[in-house]
Amino acid sequence: PFSISNHFFDCQLSLYDGCLPSQVLKSLPRIEGRPGATLPPLDFDALEAGLRLLHGDDITEEDVMSAAMYPKVFEEYKEFTGSFGPVDCLSTRLFLDGPKIAEEFQVEIERGKTLHIKALAVGDLNKTGQRGVFFELNGQLRSVLVKDNLAMKEMKFHPKALKSVRGQVGAPMPGKVIEVKVEPGQKVEKGQPLCVLSAMKMETVVNCPLTGVVTVIHVNTGTSLEGDDLILEITAEE
């Protein structure tokens, strides 16, 4: 496994005498002596300056050491805290499992400043894969939308047509596809009907915006669409 071979490659300890290192490392290069002795000098001042440029001026000495020893882990940590804030003020159970409904807890965000929070309810999953979370914050009713990553793995999202990409045709309004009038590889002319949508008991014809060839069709008869959902793609005729 990579973890084992990487361990041998990183360590290269003299106690692994014999054929075992060769069998594990195989074609990986061997390092003679202490691995750290061959590393180039590290400019900690330059590293700190780079971290401050990327993450702001709240970089500590511990951050610099972490970035020096575990650069990938440190970047993942900063990305996480950038999205979710200083979660170190939460207890381990609250961080891993979240609060139970009707549970009250306190979070000290700084010395002398404590938030009193009570979890009230979690709403149903919406079309964008989010749930409404309702809670009390210092006695005031609050709510936020939280992405349900576990549920989103099972959800399918229809791609959106990008207005900046010529040839991507999107739905002008929410509706259901009742007829697709073209097929992949077919040459189409500007203004030619491409498909028919049904919305609020009315039929809407989606016309071709340019002359070209249909390359990909993203819908079938019966597909339900939201506004700007991608219907098909056309390669413009040169």
Rank of each mutant, 00 (worst) to 15 (best):
D124Q: 12
R111E: 13
E76W: 09
H55L: 10
A67L: 02
F95C: 12
E103M: 07
A67E: 00
I109S: 12
E75H: 05
E48G: 04
G112P: 02
D58C: 00
S91W: 11
V122S: 11
A121L: 02
L51S: 08
T81L: 11
I101T: 15
L54P: 00
D45N: 15
V107Y: 06
R93V: 07
L42W: 09
L42A: 14
A68I: 08
A46N: 12
I101C: 06
P41F: 14
D45W: 05
L94N: 13
V64W: 01
A121C: 02
Y70V: 01
C89G: 01
A46P: 08
A68N: 02
E104N: 14
G85M: 14
G50S: 15
P86T: 01
G98C: 09
Q106D: 15
E75G: 00
K78V: 04
C89M: 03
E61S: 05
F44N: 13
G98N: 04
L51F: 09
L125S: 07
P71F: 09
E108D: 10
G82M: 05
K118M: 08
E48P: 08
P71S: 10
Q130V: 07
G112N: 05
P99C: 05
G82D: 00
Q106G: 04
L120N: 06
I109W: 05
F44S: 13
E76S: 08
F95G: 10
D63K: 03
S66A: 14
P41W: 11
L120Y: 00
C89L: 06
E110N: 09
A68S: 12
G50D: 14
L47Y: 04
D43Q: 03
N126R: 11
K78P: 01
P99S: 02
Y77M: 11
K78D: 00
G50T: 03
L51Q: 06
D97R: 10
A46D: 15
F105C: 04
D97N: 14
L115D: 15
A49I: 06
S83N: 01
V64L: 01
D124Y: 00
G50A: 13
G123H: 09
P40V: 08
A67S: 08
D124M: 08
R52P: 04
E75I: 15
P40Q: 07
D45K: 15
S83R: 10
D57M: 02
T81G: 00
G56Q: 00
P41D: 13
Y70Q: 07
V122L: 06
T81V: 13
L47K: 15
F44M: 15
L125W: 09
D97G: 04
Q130L: 02
F95W: 14
G123P: 11
T60E: 03
L115K: 09
Q106V: 03
L53R: 13
G82H: 05
F84A: 00
I109E: 11
E61N: 14
E62D: 10
K100F: 11
G82K: 04
R111N: 03
Y70F: 11
D43F: 00
T114W: 01
E61Q: 12
E104C: 02
E61A: 04
E110L: 02
S91T: 14
F44D: 07
G56K: 10
I101S: 13
